[in-house]
């Protein structure tokens, strides 16, 4: 459904962030995107959602296809209308607006009132907490509630693909678990998800497939269950053995060539 082909991105014309990353998200599937800070995960999401120009970044190579059509030159508005919505890292809710106003801001591209109503009811049944706090200021919600609001707001556009950037960031473990279950539930209703996470354990537990990004390139791609077994991943991202960062990095690099062959085609 979504396909990134050798996507290269630089910021301010000089700083490379992606150096030819390829990735594929089939319909109705959860794909996890792992990697350390600065690996290019957020840049990859921005490239998809059209937010690069805001950060003075530009696609300098490759292309992004959505249902076979190029979308890498389109405006963020157009991309949302086509069915891709991004939840930014750090929640980024409109804190002076009420919960309801936040949700309706998420439906700004939707013209059909019946569709807005349906999306609204769906969000309310997914997040009963939000239903209770409809008219309170979003800035006063707890961190977990704010994350739910951020996801709910994105769902108001009824996307076919949801891009989630670090939804577990700064949340308590039980809340991380709830967010994980919500992602599974959203996916069960037919929405594909691209999940960027530092919390690899959580991400791989809900994802069908995973990619590992390193300095702007995809170095590993495999079904999530296999990544969970993968020795390097266990050491490097799950912290199952301490102090072997360099070793793990080295091994990941060696796998780069093989990774291309292993890319999963739906």
């Amino acid at each position: 459904m979504l396909e990134l082909q050798d996507v290269a991105v630089t910021y301010q014309n000089v700083i490379p962030a992606l150096r030819g990353a390829s990735l594929e998200i089939p319909e109705k599937v959860v794909v996890a995107l792992l990697g350390t800070n600065g690996a290019g995960k957020t840049t990859l999401l921005r490239a998809i959602s059209g937010l690069l120009p805001l950060h003075r970044g530009a696609l300098v190579g490759g292309r992004i296809l959505w249902a076979g059509e190029r979308i890498d030159r389109l405006s963020p508005t157009r991309i949302v209308q086509l069915g891709i919505t991004q939840v930014l890292e750090g929640r980024r809710i409109f804190d002076d607006l009420t919960v309801d106003e936040n949700l309706h801001a998420g439906a700004i591209t939707v013209r059909n009132p019946a569709a807005i109503r349906r999306a609204y009811d769906r969000v309310m049944s997914l997040f009963p907490v939000l239903a209770e706090r409809r008219s309170s200021r979003a800035g006063y919600l707890s961190g977990g509630e704010q994350q739910m609001l951020a996801i709910g707001r994105a769902l108001m556009a009824s996307p076919r693909l949801l891009l989630l950037d670090e939804p577990s960031l700064g949340l308590a473990p039980f809340m991380v678990q709830r967010i994980r279950n919500i992602i599974a539930e959203i996916n069960a209703e037919g929405t594909a998800v691209l999940l960027v996470e530092q919390n690899a354990q959580m991400a791989l537990s809900v994802a069908h497939y995973g990619y590992v990004l390193e300095t702007g390139r995809v170095v590993l791609a495999a079904p999530a269950a296999r990544l969970l077994q993968e020795e390097n991943i266990r050491q490097f991202y799950l912290g199952l053995r301490e102090g072997e960062r360099q070793l793990a990095l080295g091994r990941l690099r060696q796998r780069r060539e093989r990774a291309a062959e292993r890319r999963w085609l739906s």
Partner: peptide
């Protein structure tokens, strides 16, 4: 609503498809 949202967080507004 679009104007108020944009005033609060331009990038988040863009991500919602607000022009």
């Amino acid at each position: 609503l679009a104007m108020r949202a944009t005033a609060l967080d331009q990038e988040a507004a863009l991500a919602m498809g607000i022009d």
